[in-house]
């Protein structure tokens, strides 16, 4: 999960700098691959979702509410960015046989959603910071234990 999230952050950074960092062909294919990463991220995080909804229904605290609003905003923005990305695509959509549009408004939608996503992803990281730190420590700690074991054997 931690590795997937790190890869997703790296991919999101690359997606946020389409011209200079990746070029548009790579940008579009990373975007396509990112859909799979989102689905996998949701599947791996799914055990948090039903309890969060239950908490929201029965005894909602402010943290649960903020987390839910952020996650819904993140999911909606990602969906809008992905769909508008497919619509304005120059390389991936034609290769996949999907229709595209020259309408400039779709580019505006894509760019605005991408900018909004920077803020929402930042806040998503902020709210899950404790988990990120503990997962990093667990991962780094786990590697240390393995290397000690190797020395002992």
């Amino acid at each position: 999960m931690a590795i997937l999230d790190t890869l997703m952050l790296a991919a999101f950074l690359a997606l946020s700098a389409p011209g200079g960092a990746t070029g548009f062909v790579v940008h579009e294919w990373i975007g396509v691959a990112f859909i799979g990463a989102i689905v996998l991220h949701l599947i791996l995080s799914w055990r948090w979702v039903p309890p969060a909804f239950r908490r929201l229904r029965h005894r909602p605290d402010s943290r649960t509410r903020v987390n839910m609003v952020l996650n819904v905003a993140l999911f909606t923005s990602m969906t809008v960015a992905t769909i508008s990305g497919f619509i304005i695509s120059d390389y991936a959509s034609p290769a996949l046989g999907l229709p595209t549009s020259d309408e400039p408004r779709w580019r505006n939608v894509h760019n605005m959603t991408a900018s909004f996503l920077l803020a929402v992803v930042g806040l998503h990281i902020a709210l899950n910071w404790t988990w990120i730190v503990s997962a990093t420590k667990r991962y780094v700690g786990g590697r240390r234990r393995i290397s000690r074991g190797e020395v002992a054997s």
């Binding site: 950074l13 920077l118 803020a119 992803v121 930042g122 806040l123 990281i125 902020a126 709210l127 910071w129």
Partner: peptide, 8 residues
């Protein structure tokens, strides 16, 4: 992302 993470 860092600015929003820190502020958040």
């Amino acid at each position: 992302i860092g600015v929003f993470a820190v502020v958040g």
